[in-house]
Simulated assay, not measured.
Amino acid sequence: MKVKEIYLDYAATTPVDPEVIEVMTQCLGPSGDSANPSSSHAAGRRAKARIDIARGQIAERICAPAENIWFTSGATESDNLALFGVMQANKQRGRHMITSTLEHKAVLDAAKILESQGVDVTFVRHNADGVINPHDLAASIRDDTVLVSIMHVNNETGVLQDIEALGECCRERGVLFHVDAAQSTGKVPLSVSDYPVDLVSLTAHKTYGPMGVGAIYIRQGVKISPIIHGGEQEGGYRPGTLATHQIAGFGKAFALADPDREAPLLKSRRDQLWEGLRKIECASLNGHATQRSPHVLNVTFHGIEGESLRAALSDIAVSAGSACNSNIADPSHVLRAMGLSDALAASSLRFSVGRYTSESDIDYVLGRVEQEVSRLKELANGAPDWTTS
């Protein structure tokens, strides 16, 4: 008999929507629009038309001009282009940037390399709920600050930053503001025409599109240097032959990703999950209780080793944190930055719901988690105090 499997790791990646698959398939094979979109012949023009449509769909989703959307291989590359490209192109303005210890490794590791190249990096304060106060950001900005990079929706806790207020702090001081919005689309509103942002990193695979393709929004007039060389595609910002099928799927995925339609369903499933989990005596929520995306819950199970619980829940896809750090044994850097001890951070799991999560899925997960937590607590009786604090 086949074991029931429940997928609750939508923050790591999402299944590709059938409508997206259909559009991608139309760009593959000898009869598909599979020519090089840079070619001037009819087949090339058809492929380029596909890309133009997708660029417009992505731009419409974030309320941006289509001419400010540039394709990359994903949000990691977009983050790197934003940090390295801006700091290189604007080095005459200063050598200081600001980010936070809550960011994705794509930003943190890039910032570490920039530090080794002489850039002064400040990590702005946040509270225990993982929220950055705009006043703290304003106090961190210096005369030589070039760039601020802050994530919109945290990929591990789901905490939602007030990018409008943070962006105003930057705009008042003439500082460029980069936002990693990989987790935002389809879950929360994201309008670059309303928010004072200069660069936004996007990806397809968190929004029911294919892996391996992303984009960056660059506001008109922002100076940025390419970090890859070898062609004039994408305005010279990102040379290389464009992957028509991936980009077409990316566009369709964003066209379908309406937060007004999807967020209420996601919130309902998330709240159903938390109402059940909070009844488990040892469970506590990580991150702000209300200032959060509707699709992510990060929960600490005090006295339970997170990897043991995850292994016991082999029929449920959940994670101990970012998928990008899954091969690293250390506890979540985000949770530790929020003040959790190594032991408590290691006792935490991330649950993330999505478009295909049903009420019955949540009921099943709650029953399994309660069963395994009870079993593991029995096994942990007599464990030393440091495992629970």
Rank of each mutant, 00 (worst) to 15 (best):
G354I: 03
G118C: 09
S39D: 15
L340K: 07
F84K: 13
P30S: 11
A317C: 14
L190V: 09
Q371L: 07
A54R: 01
L340D: 04
N90H: 09
H96C: 13
T244A: 07
T72Q: 10
E281P: 01
S40I: 14
S293E: 03
A323M: 06
A320D: 09
D342L: 07
I53P: 01
Q233K: 07
V146D: 05
P134D: 07
S193H: 02
D342T: 13
G29R: 08
T290F: 09
V23I: 15
Q161S: 04
Q92W: 09
G287T: 08
G236R: 10
L137M: 05
H178S: 12
L376F: 11
V222W: 02
G287I: 03
V353P: 04
I113S: 10
T290K: 08
G212C: 04
D385C: 06
G94C: 03
M87R: 01
P226H: 04
P384A: 13
M338Q: 15
T244R: 09
H205W: 10
L147I: 05
G367Y: 01
A283P: 03
N80W: 02
D120T: 15
I304S: 01
D109T: 07
P294L: 06
Y10N: 12
W386D: 14
E275G: 06
V318Q: 08
D136K: 00
S201K: 00
D144P: 11
F123G: 09
V124R: 05
A329N: 08
A312I: 06
E281Q: 02
D52Y: 00
Q183L: 11
V124T: 07
E168F: 08
A47H: 00
K223M: 12
A215Y: 02
S284R: 15
V373H: 02
I280A: 02
A263L: 11
G29V: 07
E372N: 08
L102I: 10
D120G: 09
S319I: 00
L81V: 06
L137P: 00
L366A: 03
S184W: 03
S40H: 13
E370G: 14
R238H: 13
V20C: 09
L242H: 00
P196E: 07
A343L: 14
G240Y: 07
I113E: 13
I141Q: 10
E232P: 00
E359Q: 15
A317W: 07
P294Q: 04
D271P: 02
R173Y: 02
P239H: 11
S116I: 02
G56L: 03
L202F: 02
D33I: 08
R142K: 15
G287D: 04
T290S: 10
S314N: 15
T300I: 12
S193N: 06
S201D: 06
E164Y: 11
P196N: 12
Y217S: 01
K267D: 14
H126K: 12
P239G: 11
Q291I: 08
D33M: 09
V353S: 03
V124M: 04
G321R: 05
H333N: 04
L108T: 15
A283V: 14
V3E: 15
I58G: 04
S374C: 09
P259Q: 08
V86T: 15
V159E: 05
V107H: 01
P196W: 06
N127Q: 12
E232G: 06
I328F: 08
L166T: 03
T13E: 14
M97F: 06
D330C: 06
L137E: 03
E378A: 10
V373Q: 05
A343D: 14
E234Y: 02
G212W: 04
